[in-house]
Simulated scan of single mutants.
Amino acid sequence: MNILQLDSAITGEASVSRKLTADIVARLKAQDPAASVTYRDLNEGVAAIDNAWFHAVRVVPENPSPEQQQLIDRADAYLQEVQDADVLVIGLPVYNFNLPAQLKNWLDQIARAGVTFRYTEAGPEGLLKGKRAIVGYASAGTPIGSEIDHASGYLRHMLAFLGITDVTFVAADRLAMDRDAGLARAQDVIDQIAA
């Protein structure tokens, strides 16, 4: 089993979502000690897609400039990590009712027409099938699945759009109201995860 662990919290060691992803990976590794883990901290910087990215990655010039090649290489590295993974363990800290910009930027980098999704007569088809995602959701006050939670629904939709429909959320939500209860709810879900 190949695991891709993605963190995006800006709070470092104090991050609950980072603790959740670490605990989820530890649980998977305990069940499958031979599992490999690729780790990427999105907080180290994921460029937003822009005009330069479009002309390098989507248009694919025949003779890319050094700057374009750098954009292509970075986007392809993100993509290869996802393609190689059997399981994605994604940290989802909720900031201002939504996912962090760096996680959105990563999704934009890997959402590539003809590679991770395609349009058919029946509508869009995700091409990253057969993968599983486990999401460590952490929020101070936003209940998961509530009308003010714009993070979990969007991430679930994007993963499904890319073909990843086996998605489990491990939620430590409403931590500002009752931290211990939120962490306990998350631990109960982690304890039931099977590799």
Results as ranks from 00 to 15, higher is better:
A35Q: 05
F117D: 08
V89N: 09
A133L: 12
T168W: 07
R185S: 12
A122I: 01
P93M: 08
L128F: 06
V167F: 08
S139W: 07
I164R: 05
I134V: 15
A133E: 12
E44F: 00
S8G: 11
D73C: 04
E13M: 07
A14D: 13
I164T: 03
A52E: 10
I3S: 07
G12A: 05
P143H: 11
Q83Y: 03
A160Q: 13
M1R: 03
I49K: 06
R40T: 13
F97K: 05
Y78D: 09
D178K: 12
G91H: 04
L128H: 06
Q83C: 04
E13V: 13
E81C: 02
G153C: 04
V89Y: 09
V115N: 06
T120R: 10
Q69M: 15
H157F: 15
Q102A: 00
N105W: 00
R74K: 14
A176N: 13
A48S: 11
V170R: 04
L127Y: 13
N105K: 00
N98A: 15
D76A: 13
R132L: 07
V60F: 01
A113G: 09
S15G: 03
A47H: 06
H150F: 15
F169K: 07
L159R: 08
P93D: 00
L79R: 04
W106I: 01
T142S: 10
V87P: 01
H55L: 04
G153Y: 10
M1Y: 03
A77M: 08
L127Q: 11
E121C: 01
V59N: 02
R27K: 15
A47I: 01
G126R: 04
D149E: 12
G114H: 03
Q80L: 11
R27L: 03
T21C: 08
A172Y: 08
A133S: 13
K129F: 11
I72L: 07
M177P: 00
L107V: 13
L88R: 03
A26L: 05
T38M: 11
I144W: 02
D149V: 09
A101R: 00
K104N: 08
D7W: 00
G182M: 03
N2Q: 14
Q109F: 05
I134E: 07
P33S: 07
R174Q: 15
A52K: 03
E81P: 00
L127A: 12
A140S: 15
R112I: 14
V189C: 00
A9L: 00
E81V: 00
L175D: 03
T11M: 11
Y154N: 14
G163R: 05
F117Q: 05
P64N: 11
L28P: 03
I10Q: 09
Q109C: 08
A122T: 14
R185Y: 09
V57T: 03
Y95K: 09
S139A: 15
H55M: 10
M158K: 14
A181L: 15
I24H: 10
A22K: 14
Q187M: 08
A47Y: 04
V94Y: 01
T165I: 02
D76S: 09
M1P: 06
H157W: 15
A184P: 02
V115Y: 02
D84W: 01
A85Y: 07
A77H: 14
I24K: 03
L42P: 06
D50R: 10
V115M: 01
A195S: 14
S139F: 06
Q187C: 07
V25R: 06
L128R: 04
T120L: 08
D86A: 02
A113M: 13
P124Y: 12
